[in-house]
Amino acid sequence: MPHIQVKLWKGKTQLQKKKLAGALVKAAISIIGYGEASFSVTIEDIEPSLWKEKVYLPDILAKSDILYKEPGYKMD
């Protein structure tokens, strides 16, 4: 059962998050299959000042072996 996790800067509306979740599920269905009921999606708001600590270091740099799209930015 696929689970999609999204972490983004705090400030997006609930409607934007619902639309994003729906679009991600729709895209995933078209690529990997499964029915819509198989998917779950979480969207976590992250304070911009905590991005490096909570996302960049543990989820991007530390998991480079499973990172399928690198960001276009670097953090010191």
Rank of each mutant, 00 (worst) to 15 (best):
Lys17Asp: 01
Ile32Asn: 08
Ser38Gly: 12
Ile46Leu: 11
Lys18Phe: 12
Ala23Trp: 07
Leu20Asp: 00
Trp9Glu: 07
Phe39Ala: 02
Leu20Gly: 00
Leu50Trp: 03
Leu57Pro: 02
Val25Phe: 02
Val41Glu: 06
Glu44Val: 09
Ile4Glu: 09
Ser38Val: 05
Ala62Ser: 13
Ser49His: 11
His3Gln: 09
Tyr56Asn: 11
Gly72Ala: 09
Ile60Met: 11
Leu61Phe: 07
Lys26Tyr: 04
Lys54Leu: 15
Gln5Asn: 14
Ser40Asn: 11
Gly11Phe: 11
Gly33Ile: 08
Pro2Ile: 06
Ile43Val: 14
Gly72Tyr: 03
Ile60Glu: 11
Thr13Trp: 00
Met75Glu: 14
Ser30Tyr: 05
Thr13Met: 08
Ile60His: 04
Ser40Arg: 09
Ala37Tyr: 13
Ser30Ile: 06
Pro2Asp: 12
Thr42Gly: 10
Leu57Ser: 07
Glu36Cys: 09
Ile4Gly: 01
Lys18Val: 14
Ala23Met: 11
Met75Tyr: 12
Lys52Cys: 11
Leu50Gln: 15
Ile31Phe: 10
Val25Gln: 05
Ile60Leu: 04
Glu44Pro: 01
Leu57Glu: 14
Thr13His: 02
Ile32Arg: 12
Thr13Asn: 05
Gly35Thr: 10
Lys52Pro: 00
Pro48Trp: 06
Ile29Ser: 04
Pro58Lys: 15
Gly11Gln: 10
Lys12Val: 05
Tyr73Gly: 02
Ala62Pro: 01
Ser64Gly: 06
Ala62Leu: 14
Leu57Gly: 02
Glu70Asp: 14
Ala37Asn: 14
Lys63His: 07
Leu61Met: 06
Val55Gln: 10
Thr13Ser: 15
Gly33Glu: 14
Gly35Cys: 06
Leu61Pro: 03
Trp9Ile: 05
Ala62His: 09
Gln16Glu: 15
Tyr68Pro: 00
Ile46Tyr: 06
Lys63Asp: 05
Leu61Glu: 07
Gln5Ile: 03
Ala62Ile: 07
Lys52Leu: 08
Thr13Ile: 04
Asp45Pro: 04
Lys18His: 08
Ile46Thr: 03
Ile60Ala: 03
Gly35Ala: 14
Ile29Pro: 00
Ser30Glu: 15
Glu36Gln: 13
Gln16Trp: 01
Phe39Lys: 04
Ala28Ile: 06
Lys18Ile: 06
Glu53Gln: 15
Lys10Phe: 05
Val55Gly: 12
Glu44Lys: 14
Ala21Cys: 06
Pro71Trp: 14
Tyr56Met: 09
Ala23Cys: 08
Lys19Val: 01
Trp9Ser: 02
Leu8Gln: 13
Lys7Pro: 01
Phe39Cys: 01
Leu24Phe: 10
Gln14Val: 07
Val6Gly: 04
Trp9Lys: 08
Gln14Ser: 05
Lys19Thr: 01
Ala37Leu: 14
Leu8His: 07
Glu47Gln: 13
Leu8Thr: 01
Gly72Lys: 04
Ile32Pro: 01
Ile4Cys: 12
Lys12Glu: 13
Thr42Ile: 15
Ala37His: 11
Ser38Trp: 09
Ile66Asn: 03
Tyr56Glu: 02
Ala62Asp: 13
Ile31Tyr: 13
Asp65Val: 06
Ser40Met: 10
Ser49Asp: 15
Ala21Trp: 02
